[in-house]
Amino acid sequence: MSSKHKNLSSQRIILKVKCYTPISKPLNGSLPRSNNSHMLRLYPIKYQYGTGKEKKEAETQIYLIKGLRGAVRHAVMWVCKTYGMEVCHTTDKQEDKSGNKLLPAGFHLLAACAKEQSCIVHEIFGSKGKESLIAVFADPITSVNHKTAQFDQQIQNVHIATENRVNKTYDGKTVQDFGERYFSGHFSFEINVTRCSSTQIGLLIEAIMNIEKMGRGYNSGYGHVLVEAFQLLNRTIERKPIFETDSGEFKIQQIIDNQPLKQEVKDAMKGWEKYRELVA
């Protein structure tokens, strides 16, 4: 097995971010024969609820929050721009077929810096030939009304609903009738920064504090994100096979231990300050 695999170690450094969004649409696309744009639907899960001895069982659908890595990337890009650093943009073309400019001022094309000295954004997020140093992951979300709901796996409970929209002409005739799924509430996501240096973690921390938007429709008032808290964690995961019988079958026990890193956050912020003074 290749030792270069980025998720092959028992120790990880995790940047955990807690957020709140009033309404957000991290959509995946529309399903066949449907006018509604959906989030990435995963699978139905069963959960238990109730306070008595006999608990009731119900089923709910879980979804994935898309576009978190993109939100972090855009925040990192704009933080770098404010300090006068020229970094990679997401596009690799100057303009499209009809002549519209795709590259804003203050950025260079994606991986244009790779031949000489790659910029800090290219180092963290990579490009086609270079692997990304970070991995962004959020626990799946669902919408459950029962306050005593208990899940077997880690699930975030938010409010999920559909917004119905109708496009009309000046005469009042309906042109298009469509719906978009949205979610709102408190949620959290994690960034695996095990392979990042201290300065890179410092940049990510500053970018996270400046995340503003996520998903569709920012100009229409959707997708505003408020970052409430963040935490740098040293996470150790131990997995052990527990052989129960002589038949050779075993269950896998997983023990997760999280320890907060306070001094490392300060060191990372100082490292990032030094770096930006040198480069800018």
């Binding site: 695999h5 998720n7 092959l8 796996q153 096979p241 896998i252």
Partner: peptide
């Protein structure tokens, strides 16, 4: 088995949270 249990994700777009796995059980037979 020790190395396989450490795998967290498989496939493309792992950095965007795709392909994550939770290991449950297994067997070792002759």
């Amino acid at each position: 088995l020790q190395t396989l249990m450490e795998i967290e994700a498989i496939g493309r777009f792992q950095s965007e949270g795709m392909g994550y796995i939770q290991w449950l059980k297994g067997s070792l037979k002759a």
